[in-house]
Design a protein around this nucleic acid. Structure first.
Length: 236
DNA sequence: ACATTAAATTCGA
DNA sequence: TCGAATTTAATGT
C-alpha cells in the first residue's frame, strides 16, 4: 500500500501538474482559467462493474477518465447490449449530452476499477463560452467520434469478429481521443470482448489472428500494438 | 467449460 | 522485510 515510487503525488492545492496530465485540453488555458476549472472538478472512484450513470439519468458532468476503463453503451428493449465506445485514460466524453441539455442517452459502466474526473456543467459551459481553444478541442473530438460511429455502422453489418476486435482496439488507440496513449494497451481479453461485443474466447481467437498478421503482440493483461495503421484498416 | 499460467495477497519467520 | 504458500485473475484451447 505504501510502495510509492519516485512519482510525486498531487500536492493538495499547488501545481497544475496532475490536472494538466489528465486533461490535454487544459494545455492552452491560462493559470487563472485552470484554477477555475479545477474548482469545478471532482474525482470519483468506481469499482469494477459499477454503473457510472444510467440511461435517462440526469448526470450533469463532463467525464474524463483518469485511470481505468469504461464502456459506453445501451441495452435494447429486447435486452441486447450494444457497446458504442470504450474510454480509457486521457479520454473525455459526455459533451454531447451537456450541449444538448438533455438526459444521458447511454449507460456508462466501469469495466474495472476506474477513477473518473467529473467537471460540473456550470464550469463546462463557462469554458465553452470563454475559451476558443477549448472549442477547438471539442470540435476535433466530436469529429473523431463521428468517424468512429460511421465505422460502427459498418461493424454491425459485417459479422467478422476479428474485424470487430481490430476496430475496438483501434478506437482505443485514437490519439485525438486518447492523447497519452502509447503503443501498449493495458486491457484484458475479457474487457476487449465486452467492448467489441464478442465473447472472451472469440476475442482470444481474434487476437491470435491479428498477432499472426504481425499487427500486434499479446502478453498477460496487455496488448502491444505493432502496426496501428494496418490494424485500423483490417478487414477492408 | 476446463486446464494452465501469471500475478497479487497472505502469512510465518 | 523476505520469500514461500495460497488465492485470484487472465489466458489458451
Amino acid at each position: 500500500m505504501q510502495k510509492l515510487d519516485g512519482e510525486h503525488k498531487p500536492s493538495a492545492c499547488e501545481g497544475t501538474d496532475w490536472f494538466r496530465r489528465i486533461a490535454v485540453w487544459s494545455a492552452k488555458l491560462s493559470d487563472a482559467q485552470c484554477l477555475r476549472v479545477r474548482a469545478g472538478l471532482q474525482i470519483r472512484t468506481y469499482e469494477r462493474g459499477a454503473t457510472v450513470c444510467e440511461q435517462n439519468e440526469a448526470f450533469d458532468y463532463w467525464i474524463g477518465v483518469v485511470e481505468g476503463l469504461v464502456k459506453v453503451g445501451t441495452v435494447t428493449p429486447e435486452g441486447k447490449e450494444i457497446t458504442f465506445a470504450g474510454a480509457h485514460a486521457g479520454g473525455w466524453f459526455g459533451e454531447g449530452t451537456l450541449l444538448k441539455r438533455e438526459r444521458r442517452r447511454y449507460t456508462v459502466t466501469a469495466l474495472r476499477k476506474t477513477k473518473l474526473a467529473l467537471l460540473d456543467k456550470k464550469t463546462f459551459f463557462w469554458l465553452y463560452e470563454n475559451s476558443v481553444d477549448f472549442n477547438h478541442f471539442l470540435i476535433a473530438q466530436i469529429n473523431e467520434r463521428l468517424g468512429q460511429f460511421i465505422g460502427l455502422i459498418e461493424n454491425e453489418r459485417k459479422l467478422d469478429t476479428t474485424t470487430r476486435v481490430a476496430r475496438a482496439l483501434s478506437s482505443l488507440l485514437n490519439p485525438v481521443l486518447y492523447p497519452d496513449v502509447g503503443s501498449r494497451l493495458a486491457i484484458t481479453q475479457e474487457e476487449l470482448g465486452l467492448l467489441a461485443g464478442v465473447s472472451r474466447p472469440v476475442a482470444n481467437q481474434a487476437l491470435g489472428e491479428l498477432e499472426r498478421c504481425g499487427l500486434l503482440r499479446v502478453t498477460y493483461g496487455e496488448i502491444a500494438i505493432c502496426d496501428a495503421g494496418r490494424l485500423r484498416a483490417y478487414g477492408e
